[in-house]
Amino acid sequence: MRIDAHAHVAAPGHGEVEGDPWGRDKLMIQAADALEIDHLCCSCLAASRPSRPEQFIACNDQMRAAMDEFGNRLLGYCYVNPGYQKEAVAEIERCVTGMDFIGVKLYNEYKFYDPAVRPVIEKCIELDVPILHHAGHTWHPLPGQPFISDAADLARALVDYPEAKVICGHLGGGGDWEWTIKALRDSENLFVDTSGSVVDDGMIERAVDALGAHRMLFACDMSMCAGVGKILAADISQQEREMIFSGNTRKLLGGRI
């Protein structure tokens, strides 16, 4: 089984291809079919950020509609801007308890260790759902992302929340992956997804050696062949490959799949 732990459905009004409003998401499903990906854990991000509550609510409604459209192929993360604390917490409650979402997606509106994010982290602990966090560490500024969190920022926040379950997004799309692996090492409740277009040889093996396969989740973040190919290529045991492809995500989601 293969479960993509980091994917996206199109933002509201941005998914049309050749007149089909679901066209862009159908292309993702076609890719998943070809690459034997059974489930995709998706979020729907606002087309412009930082998002306001009405935007992230509309995105989550779009995510739910996509789950209805494509059946059990898609699982939904609830996307919020944690700066709107009251609205964000209410939206997480609405999505997880009322709409069957599996977790929360945070993007780059706030550093994860910012006190503004604490109510969201605490809500996720209460509901026992993971947070997938957009992340990256580069040595030159990323335009438009002054508050992007890196692995060390995630680890810093988790010192106070050892019971939280957080996924560091896109090891292969977040800049210096060697730095990221080292920064992740000491936080056992910090997982990493393998997504991103970067397919540097040795990346997966280095992460397995440093973190253990049990902390790694297969994902594509829309770089579909890159996502699958790097896991197939890695010189790891079959048991480790199966853990990464699906076992760890299934465990993290507490039997939801």
């Binding site: 397919v199 540097d200 040889d201 062949c225 890159a226 699958v228 190919g229 790097k230 197939l232 290529a233």
Partner: peptide, 17 residues
């Protein structure tokens, strides 16, 4: 492929699929 900078399998998959 970009080997040995990169894994070979991703582009093999592209050709196969």
């Amino acid at each position: 492929t970009g080997m040995p900078f990169k894994y070979v399998d991703p582009v093999l998959l592209k050709l196969e699929k």
